[in-house]
Write a protein that binds this DNA or RNA. Structure first.
Length: 356
DNA sequence: CTTCAATTTCCTGATT
DNA sequence: TAATCAGGAAATTGAA
């Protein structure tokens, strides 16, 4: 059971850091820890909530649970307030009473509350000692945040004693945009991922697929690939770095395993390859080819081997190296005018407004 | 036109 | 068995 928790935590973007503390705790109780299994696809994560105590649910897990409930109950998800609920993590749900569920979702709040309580009763509590709920956010503080900041750092998923220190000066991630780090706990801790951005993304992928198919029918995909619009600032590692900052792609397609160490994981390898191919106007890009290009980075130390600590999955995990030292600074330079995936001026204004 | 960096493509074989 | 990793070799692309 403990290993299930470890696995579940480890698969979150903030997992490795939390994991160390959990393992530390477990170690003091003479429990051996096991390396987490290798997830083969994002879909495996959608089942994580079933084997994980709600205390450890990230908003992804809440969303997955929500999807399971509406499916089981035959409820149309559009009729629920999934947007709001999907921004909560498990701890927040645990501290909500029926009235608060109803406030969040007037239509189905009572059902969701009943389902959640039932789930708690059927799940046995596990590790509890080192966890306490601190600074628990009240519902009145649930303010919508701009999409693009919702995943900007793993800080978003952390809180309480397990939260890692998001000091911009020491964090190699720092995002070049310490605005995220400056967000008050109460606002930022709520948001780990956005259900609707995932839906939007899958829709956009469908549109892409349609246009690719259309090209195929016209025979254009078999011709030589078109020139990419701009190669400057279009390197593969920069593309991945940007994808790690973009809520459209992080954590659904790539996600941090340990941002301080520069360790990240590719979640949806073929989707990432498709996006890279799209950027390079190369419809034939595959993960095989993308990963070959990534392996050329080992020579240049843009990527370095992932430490075999057992903290990370063995597959699809990479680590930025000194050759990619600028990876967090690049957006700082462009920060205000920003490229495709940083935070725009407008979003910054919104952010500052939230910060006050 | 040439050079060169950064892939891209294709491949064989190993590992998970 | 499929997906991924590792890396050689040659080709391609786009910028300087």
């Amino acid at each position: 059971m403990a290993s299930a928790i470890i696995n579940a935590i480890g698969q979150t973007p903030w997992g490795p850091l939390v994991l160390r503390r959990v393992q530390n705790y477990i170690h003091t109780n003479n429990n051996p820890c096991q390396p987490k299994p290798i997830p083969f696809s994002e879909s495996s994560d959608l089942e994580r909530f079933r084997s994980t105590s709600p205390e450890f649910w990230a908003s992804d897990d809440v969303t997955a649970w929500l999807c399971a409930v509406v499916k089981a109950k035959g409820i149309r998800i559009e009729e629920t307030n999934a947007y709001k609920l999907g921004r909560c993590n498990g701890k927040i749900l645990l501290n909500m009473d029926e009235q608060q569920f109803k406030e969040m979702d007037p239509n189905y709040g009572h059902i969701l509350f009943a389902e959640f309580r039932q789930l708690i009763q059927t799940q046995r509590p596990v590790v509890s000692a080192p966890f306490t709920v601190q600074n628990l956010t009240t519902l009145s503080q649930l303010q919508p945040l701009p999409n693009s900041i919702s995943q900007c750092t793993p800080t978003a998923a952390t809180e309480s004693p397990l939260a890692f220190d998001p000091k911009p000066s020491t964090s190699r991630l720092s995002n070049g945009d310490s605005a995220c780090n400056k967000l008050p706990h109460s606002s930022i801790q709520l948001v780990t991922s956005n259900f609707f951005s995932k839906i939007d993304y899958s829709l956009s992928l469908q549109v892409e697929n349609c246009s690719e198919e259309a090209d195929e029918m016209q025979g254009t995909s078999t011709s030589r690939r078109k020139r990419s619009t701009h190669t400057k600032g279009n390197k593969l590692w920069e593309f991945i770095r940007d994808a790690l900052k973009d809520p459209e792609t992080c954590p659904s397609i790539v996600r941090w395993e340990d941002p301080k160490e520069g360790v990240f994981r590719i979640v949806e390898s073929e989707k990432l390859a498709r996006l890279w191919g799209k950027k390079k106007n190369n419809a034939k890009m595959t993960y095989e080819k993308l990963s070959r290009a990534m392996r050329t980075y080992y020579d240049k130390q843009i990527l370095v081997p992932v430490p075999k600590t057992g903290l990370y999955p063995k597959k699809l995990v990479y680590k930025f190296g000194p050759g990619a030292e600028e990876w967090e600074k690049a957006t700082k330079v462009n920060g205000l005018d920003r490229n495709e995936s940083g935070i725009s001026k407008q979003e910054k204004v919104q952010l500052l407004h939230i910060i006050k």
